[in-house]
Amino acid sequence: MKVHNLSETNSVVNHFLAEIRNVNIQNDRMRFRRNIERIGEILAYEMSKSLHFSSEEIQTPLSEIKANLIDDKVVVCSILRAGVPLHNGILNYFDWVDSSFISAYRYHISETEFEINVEYLASQNLDNKVLILADPMLATGQSLLATFEALIKVGLPKEVHIISVIAAQPGIDFLKDKLPQETQLWIGAIDEKLNDKGYIVPGLGDAGDLAYGEKLQK
């Protein structure tokens, strides 16, 4: 898996990341969602550079001109519910592509043990498509793996790209041997560890709760 870590280069992404992490700012839900969306836009732009383009002739009011346009068939799939703002940011730049949605959540067996449950999937056929998986927090990597395994039942994509805001290094290491070798990860920042409950440290907390309000725990 190839990793593209935007935090390795100074950019405005650092400001958005600081705001979604900051306990004095992140509880403004509208601002939190918008910052996730903006990070999604930037990551989508960077990811677009890896796609296949072909030259097409278009007509302007004055003349004809050749333009290089994306000719890959792209599907964006977000993991509900935390992935929705990130999905929206990606669609702001990939406004013509198809969208899929899947639910994946932690079912807690104990305070520190959990399994991933996938209960809902709405997707197009993914055969020979470019699949973008949108999940703001890549923690243990188990949700992304369960999502991928569910999605390939409806088609085998030719390329897989993961767009996330913050990842934990153990989660990246977990996925490297379990996803297709050519998978690419586009990430805002990488944190070094997980706590005993499987949450990213320093991270930012629960992205879904910060975006939409606290949920009942299962």
Rank of each mutant, 00 (worst) to 15 (best):
Met1Val: 07
Val3Cys: 06
Leu6Asn: 12
Leu6Val: 14
Leu6Arg: 15
Ser7Met: 05
Glu8Ala: 05
Thr9Ala: 14
Phe16Asp: 06
Ala18His: 10
Ile20Gln: 10
Ile20Cys: 08
Asn24Asp: 15
Ile25Asn: 11
Asn27Tyr: 13
Asp28Val: 00
Asp28Phe: 01
Asp28Asn: 15
Arg31Gln: 15
Phe32Met: 01
Ile42Glu: 12
Leu43Tyr: 07
Ala44Leu: 07
Tyr45Glu: 03
Ser50Phe: 07
Ser55Phe: 00
Glu57Cys: 09
Gln59Val: 14
Gln59Leu: 11
Thr60Ser: 12
Pro61Met: 12
Ser63Lys: 08
Asn68Lys: 15
Lys73Gly: 03
Lys73Glu: 15
Leu80Thr: 11
Leu80Asn: 10
Ala82Glu: 06
Leu86Ala: 04
Leu86Met: 08
Asn88Glu: 15
Leu91Ala: 09
Leu91Trp: 09
Asn92Cys: 06
Phe94Ile: 08
Phe94His: 08
Asp95Trp: 08
Ser99His: 08
Phe101Gln: 15
Ser103His: 05
Tyr105Thr: 02
Ile109Lys: 09
Ile109Ala: 06
Glu111Asn: 11
Glu113Ile: 06
Val118Arg: 11
Glu119Arg: 14
Tyr120Cys: 03
Leu126Val: 07
Asn128Ile: 01
Asn128Val: 00
Lys129Tyr: 05
Val130Tyr: 10
Leu133Ile: 15
Leu133Ser: 08
Ala134Asn: 04
Asp135Tyr: 06
Pro136Cys: 00
Leu138Gln: 04
Leu138Met: 00
Leu138Tyr: 01
Gly141Lys: 03
Gln142Met: 12
Ser143Val: 02
Ser143Trp: 01
Thr147Cys: 10
Phe148Gln: 07
Leu151Asn: 07
Lys153Cys: 09
Lys153Met: 13
Pro157Arg: 04
Pro157Thr: 06
Pro157Asp: 06
Glu159Gln: 12
Ile163Asp: 03
Ser164Thr: 15
Ala168Pro: 03
Ala168Trp: 07
Ala168Gly: 08
Gln169Ile: 13
Gly171Val: 04
Ile172Gln: 05
Leu175Arg: 08
Leu175Ile: 12
Lys176Thr: 11
Lys176Asp: 12
Lys176Ala: 14
Lys176Pro: 03
Asp177Cys: 01
Thr183Trp: 05
Leu185Ala: 09
Ile190Met: 05
Lys193Pro: 01
Lys193Glu: 15
Lys193Gln: 14
Leu194Gln: 04
Leu194Ala: 01
Asp196Ser: 13
Lys197Leu: 02
Lys197His: 05
Gly198Trp: 02
Ile200Met: 03
Val201Ala: 01
Val201Trp: 05
Gly203Trp: 04
Gly203Phe: 00
Ala207Ile: 04
Leu210Gly: 01
Lys215Asp: 13
Lys215Tyr: 09
Lys215Ala: 13
Leu216Gly: 13
Leu216Ser: 06
Gln217Ser: 13
Lys218Glu: 10
Lys218Leu: 07
